[in-house]
Nucleic acid binder design. Structure first.
Lengths: 156, 156
DNA sequence: GTGAATCAAATTGCCCGCAATTAAATTTGA
DNA sequence: TCAAATTTAATTGCGGGCAATTTGATTCAC
């Protein structure tokens, strides 16, 4: 004698397809890690009164000096729809300058003003603070960085 | 007679500190990869008329059936400030239902409506399409996923 | 040299993401 | 029991991101 136990179809739990499970995908950990990272920066950046993308712009300007909006966009993978208002906010706080390139009036050159330059000193401690927070060995850190770089290359 | 040629201090290239270089950090590749990933989903999700975070919400509902706003927030690491308007948009399109839990009127239970349930079928091909796009070996994929999960755990 | 094509930035409009606050329900503990 | 603390969503306000369009400058092709 065999008894079949028939579980009724529960429409509130419809076909949990493993392909579509959050934890089996790359997308969600990436999305979550990126936002958590930004949040980890937040208290440090708050002291400089910078948002995370504003900080990225300043990193590039500290490293390269003047850059056009286009060059900033290429390096950060952001377009002028994002950068223009962001840069105007930095300009209003006298951290950066914005001027048309006289040799090509289409381009806008972004430069550092003294206050923006001065912020670099305050920012020096930030990478180390984050490193501590992450608790990754140098090998793990490097492996992850390399993999992400490869991913970025693959997708861009 | 000696002529000194004094190179003026070039304030446009100020002290490129390696610690502060974009490419030496984890934060930027993570930020860029996350946005590029979302962009890679975009054409696929456009056919479902979903944004990426809306898709994540539906993934959870397809997997778990009904969830409260709080539970969605815990799993996606998003707060009601993000979720409430997003869920209202899905409700307006009759993809999900929103109702107070009668046993605890503070909670709002989100459920799938038929149109939302039906979308799952159209979404089934999405993970495979991305997998193809990424061109990662199963080992690389798994390694990266594990490292990101660890990072998320470390930061949350 | 001139009209067409291209390019760079700005603008518009929409949707996140999140800090901070508010409102309402529930739990708690004296 | 009942006031205080806690919990859950909603709301507000602001700064990204990004697609799509517009404006103006430059380059290209003929």
């Amino acid at each position: 004698m065999v008894t079949f136990i028939v579980t009724p179809l529960d429409m509130s739990k419809p076909t949990p397809n493993p392909l579509l499970q959050l934890e089996n995908q790359l997308c969600f950990p990436l999305y979550a890690a990126s936002r958590l990272f930004t949040k980890a920066y937040q208290p440090l950046l708050q002291e400089l009164e910078l948002t995370y993308p504003q900080y990225l712009v300043l990193l590039l300007l500290w490293e390269h000096g003047e850059l056009t909006v286009k060059e900033l966009g290429e390096r950060l993978l952001l377009d002028s729809g994002t950068l223009t208002p962001l840069l105007k906010r930095l300009e209003q706080r006298a951290l950066v300058s914005r001027r048309r390139d006289p040799r090509d009036e289409r381009s806008v050159v972004i430069g550092l003003l003294p206050a923006g330059q001065a912020l670099q000193e305050k920012a020096l401690c930030i990478p180390a603070a984050l490193q501590t927070r992450l608790q990754l060995s140098p090998e793990e850190f490097e492996a992850l960085r390399a993999q992400l770089k490869q991913l970025v290359a693959q997708l861009s």
